[in-house]
Design a binder for these strands. Structure first.
Lengths: 372, 372
DNA sequence: CTGTTAGCGCGTTCAC
DNA sequence: GTGAACGCGCTAACAG
C-alpha cells in the first residue's frame, strides 16, 4: 500500500504538505501542488479511510437507517436514497445504508457508538421511536425523515400530509364527491404510531369534517390481497362512497383489481386518488392512477443538507425558537399527477346494478344487508 | 469518548490485557476478564472502529453493490439484502450498501482502494462488467451474485436459470402448451449483456427447441405500460401462443391487466408463469401468479459465506480446477409456487372471439375488429 | 508558503 | 498469565 509518506518522498516535499495539497486546507503554491499531484497519480495513491477517520475524528460517512420492508421498496423510497447519496457525495460524504427495524435501537446504538458515521438519517419515523431516542442519547447528529411527536431541538424533513389532504379533498369535493374513504397503512402501523399514517388520518378526518364531507378511515395491510378485501369492507361501511384516497400503494393495486373484478368502473363508479405515491405505481394500474406524488428526491436532498448543517454547527440548538429554523426542519409538498382514475361523483342510487355489495366467500367478508 | 486506556485503568490492568479480553485472542484468567468486562460496561465502552481498522488492517465491513433501480426493488432483492446483512453479522462483519450502476466502476474503484470494506458483493452482473474488472484489478476479495462470462478464479452464486426454465417448460408442456413466449427484461438490458436475461433467454430457446416447442422471445421494458403493449406484440408474433413465461415482474403486472382488459381468461385462454419472482408480486395479480420463486434469502446467505471464505483464504485460487469448488461458486434453484395462472392449453382455433392480434397504437386501445 | 511533530485508539510483538 | 512499547496512516497544531 502506498502511503502519504511515499508520495511525499517521491515529490520531494514533507508529509504534511501532501496532506494539505489533498485536503486544500491551506494555501499551497501551484508548483508544489502539481508535483504532489503528479506523484500521487504516478504511484496510484489513495488515502486510507481508517487513518483519516482516526486522525481527523470524522468518518466522512453518513448512515441512512431504512426499515426492512417485506414488500420491497417502491420507486419513491429509492429516489429518496439516490438523491440522498448524490447530495451526500457533493458534501464530501458517502452514504451507507443500515437496514434496521424500529426495534433495533440497540444495533443503532452500537454502530453509532463505534463512530462509524458522522451523522444519521432515519426514515419511516414513528411518533415514539426508539431509534431516535438512541441517537438522541448518543448525541449523534441525526435528521428524521418524518417526525416524532417530540420535536424540540430535532432536525427533520417530512411530506406535508396536511397540504396533500387539502389538495385531495379540494379536488374530490369539486368533482362532487361527498362520501370519501381513506385507505391507510395497516392497523398495526397505525397502532404503533407510524407518523405518516397517523398524520394523514388525522388531517383527513379533520379536514373532511370542516368541509362537511363524510369521511371513512380504513387501515389496511400492505398486501394486494388486503386491498381486495378492503372493497367489501369500505362499501360495507358506507354504500355511498364514491371516492377513495389511498396511502397504501400495494393495497391500492388489489383494490383496483377487485373493483375491476366486480365490474365497477373507475372513475365512472368510483374515483381513486393515490397519496404520496410514486409514478411507477400510478402506471401499474388500469386506468392510470391519479396521485399526489411524494417528493422523494427533494426529500433526500433536503434531508442531507440538514444533516450536514447539524454536523457542522453542532447540536447547540437548544433555544426554543430554534425549532422552526428552516435549516433544521422542512415540510415538502406533493405534486399532483393527473391520471385517469378521477371523475365526477356518480349518483350511487342511479346505478344499483353496477354496485353489488355481495362479497366473495373466500378471503373475505360476509354478506351485508343493503340499507339504502 | 472512553478508550481502552480508560477501561484498563478502571480495571487495574494494562491496555493490552483489555484488548485480549475483548478479542479473545489469548488466554486470560477468568478473574481479570470479568474485571475488565465489568469496567467496560460500567464506563459504557465501545471500541473505535477506525482505530481498530487501522491497527488491525481489517475494516470488518462488507459492501454490497446494488444498481440504482428506477422501478424500486421487489421483495426478492430485499430478502437477499436482509439475509446477507444477517449472515454478515454472524461472521462479525457489518454490511453496507453502495448504490452503483454498471458505469460507476470508477467510484467502486475509489471506495475499495480506500479500504473501506474487506470484501464486496456485486449484484445484477453483466457478462462484461466494469465493476467486476475494477474489483479484480484492485485485488479486493469479491463475490458476484450472477456471473460474468469470464469466471476463472472468481467467486459467485447465481440462480439456476437453466433448471428453472426446465421446470417451467416441463410443466407447461405437460399442460399441453406448445406455443410459449418468454417475456424478458428490456432490450437494453439484453443488449448490455445482463446475465440473468441472457442466460434465461438462451436456456429458453435451447430447451424449447429440444422439446419441440415453438418459442418466442420478447424483451420488454420494466414498466407496466410496456407489459401491456407486449400483449399486442406477442400475439402479433404468433396468435397461437397459449402460455407466457415472464422474467419481468413489473411488465407482468401490465401484461395481466391488458389481458383482463381484452377479456381474455387466465388461465383459460392464456397461462402465465413467473420466473424468479417474489411472492409479494404473485399475490398482486388476479388471478394469483404461479411462479418459480427466486431463492433470495438463500442467495444472500450463500454469497456472504463465500465472500468470507475468499477473504479468509486469500485469493490464492489460481489452479484451474478451483473454479468448481463449492465454497467459491454455487447455483441455487427456484422453488415452485402454485398460483391460479396455470391451466391446460386452450385450442386456439376454438375461441377465435377472444383472440385478436390487432395492436393498439398507444396505451389506450379502442375497439378491435374481430378477425377469426 | 512549507516542514516538524504530536497524537488519534487500538492490535500485536516482545519481554517479563 | 500480564504489561510495555511500537506503529498502523493520517490530521492539525505549532514553528519557521
Amino acid at each position: 500500500m502506498v502511503t502519504m509518506q511515499d508520495v511525499a518522498a517521491a515529490a520531494g516535499v514533507s508529509l504534511s504538505t501532501v496532506s494539505y495539497a489533498i485536503n486544500q486546507n491551506r494555501p499551497i503554491s501551484d508548483a508544489t501542488r502539481s508535483r504532489v499531484l503528479e506523484a500521487m497519480s504516478r504511484l496510484g495513491y489513495t488515502r486510507n479511510a481508517a487513518a483519516r477517520t482516526l486522525a481527523g475524528r470524522r468518518s466522512h460517512v453518513l448512515a441512512l437507517i431504512l426499515p426492512p420492508s417485506p414488500e420491497g421498496f417502491g420507486a419513491t423510497i429509492w429516489q429518496f436514497v439516490e438523491a440522498a447519496a448524490t447530495r451526500a457525495e457533493s458534501h464530501g460524504y458517502s452514504l451507507v445504508i443500515w437496514p434496521f427495524a424500529r426495534q433495533d435501537a440497540a444495533k443503532v446504538q452500537r454502530l453509532v457508538s463505534q463512530r462509524l458515521a458522522d451523522g444519521v438519517l432515519v426514515m419511516e419515523i414513528f411518533l415514539e421511536d426508539a431509534r431516535v431516542e438512541a441517537l438522541s442519547a448518543a448525541k449523534v447528529p441525526f435528521t428524521m425523515i418524518g417526525r416524532t411527536s417530540q420535536l424540540t431541538g430535532r432536525s427533520w424533513v417530512d411530506i406535508d400530509f396536511d397540504a396533500a389532504i387539502d389538495t385531495a379533498l379540494e379536488r374530490l369535493a369539486a368533482l362532487g364527491h361527498r362520501h370519501i374513504a381513506l385507505l391507510n397503512h395497516s392497523a398495526a402501523s397505525v397502532d404503533a404510531g407510524y407518523g405518516a399514517a397517523i398524520r394523514t388520518r388525522d388531517a383527513f378526518v379533520a379536514q373532511a369534517a370542516r368541509r362537511g364531507l363524510i369521511a371513512h378511515h380504513l387501515p389496511c395491510a400492505e398486501t394486494a390481497l388486503a386491498g381486495r378485501q378492503a372493497v367489501g369492507q369500505l362499501w360495507g361501511l358506507d354504500p355511498a362512497i364514491t371516492a377513495v384516497v389511498t396511502l397504501n400503494e400495494t393495497a391500492t393495486i388489489g383494490l383496483m383489481a377487485e373493483l375491476a373484478r366486480r365490474g365497477w368502473q373507475v372513475p365512472g363508479d368510483v374515483s381513486i386518488l393515490g397519496l404520496a405515491t410514486s409514478p411507477a405505481i400510478t402506471s401499474m394500474s388500469l386506468p392510470a392512477l391519479a396521485a399526489l406524488q411524494a417528493p422523494g428526491a427533494a426529500l433526500g436532498g433536503a434531508a442531507i443538507d440538514q444533516l450536514v448543517s447539524v454536523i457542522d454547527q453542532g447540536p447547540e440548538v437548544t433555544s426554543s425558537d430554534a425549532d422552526n429554523r428552516p435549516d433544521r426542519s422542512r415540510l415538502l409538498p406533493c405534486s399532483f399527477i393527473s391520471g385517469d382514475s378521477l371523475g365526477p361523483a356518480s349518483l350511487a342510487s342511479a346505478k344499483p346494478s353496477a354496485r353489488s355489495t355481495t362479497d366473495q366467500p373466500t378471503t373475505t367478508p360476509k354478506e351485508r344487508k343493503s340499507t339504502p
